[in-house]
Amino acid sequence: MMMNLFSSFDPSSNWNLSMNWMSSMIGLIILPSMFWIIPSRMNFLWIKMNLTLHKEFKILMGNNSKGSTIIFISIFSLILFNNFLGLYPYIFTSTSHLILTLTLALPLWLTFMLYGWINNTIHMFAHLVPQGTPSILMPFMVCIETISNIIRPGTLAVRLSANMIAGHLLMTLLGNTGHMMNIYLINILLILQLMLILLESAVSIIQSYVFAILSTLYSSETY
């Protein structure tokens, strides 16, 4: 029995086992097939998308990318696939939980910070005080920039999980009212649900792109 509205997002199954997290591994079964069969339109589309992301990430990272774009394209692909899986019925949306999003964001941010402060210490100190800041405001700007750097993994994780859970929650709220409606209102409800699914599909792509592009921007500040 569902005790509250958010219980439908709990990572548990009917056998009191957290097997729902296995949904993140379904891609290992489905995705490799496109690399072994005759290239299809879906394969060409995927390669074209990866090349476009590679060019864009390379521009943001400058001449210091050295193959690092592969990491961010992989993160984009992982988040995108899990976001789309969550749109299917009875499949657990792993990206709507901070456990997964923090697992992705925190190691990335920590690696960037360690690399930057160890190899480019002067450059990292220069980022704490924006150019043109008056001398009297420098101590405050250092505090503000330090706090903004510290909360970056949290903002990355919360942005992704909040956006993913918001649409699913709205669809759940509308779906639970279907049994109290007449036939005309149910038709309107179905149209609204279809529009919400289209919106969630767009959000799935946008949020995975935002996560990857912000990670790229954060990494470019450490060079």
Rank of each mutant, 00 (worst) to 15 (best):
I191Q: 15
M141N: 06
L199N: 12
T133M: 06
I71H: 11
G154W: 02
C143Q: 08
T133N: 07
L53H: 07
S148N: 11
I136R: 13
F125K: 08
T121N: 07
S161A: 15
L80D: 01
S23Y: 07
W117D: 02
A157I: 00
N120R: 10
L114G: 03
A166D: 06
H54S: 15
M25F: 15
L106Y: 08
G132F: 02
P39R: 02
L106W: 04
I26S: 05
N149M: 07
L5P: 00
E56Q: 14
M138L: 08
N182P: 06
N182F: 09
L106H: 00
L170Y: 07
L190C: 11
F9C: 03
I188A: 13
I213M: 11
L114V: 07
I165A: 00
L102A: 06
L100G: 01
S135Y: 09
I151Q: 04
G67P: 02
I37S: 10
S219D: 10
I136P: 06
L87I: 05
L110P: 05
N176G: 04
F44R: 10
L190R: 15
F125W: 06
I165L: 00
S96N: 04
I150W: 07
A202Y: 04
I206W: 14
I188S: 13
G167L: 06
M22G: 06
W15S: 11
S8F: 09
W21P: 03
M141L: 14
A166C: 05
D10T: 11
N4G: 07
W109K: 01
L106D: 00
N63R: 15
I38E: 14
L169F: 08
W117A: 01
V158T: 03
I79L: 15
A105K: 00
T101L: 02
L190G: 09
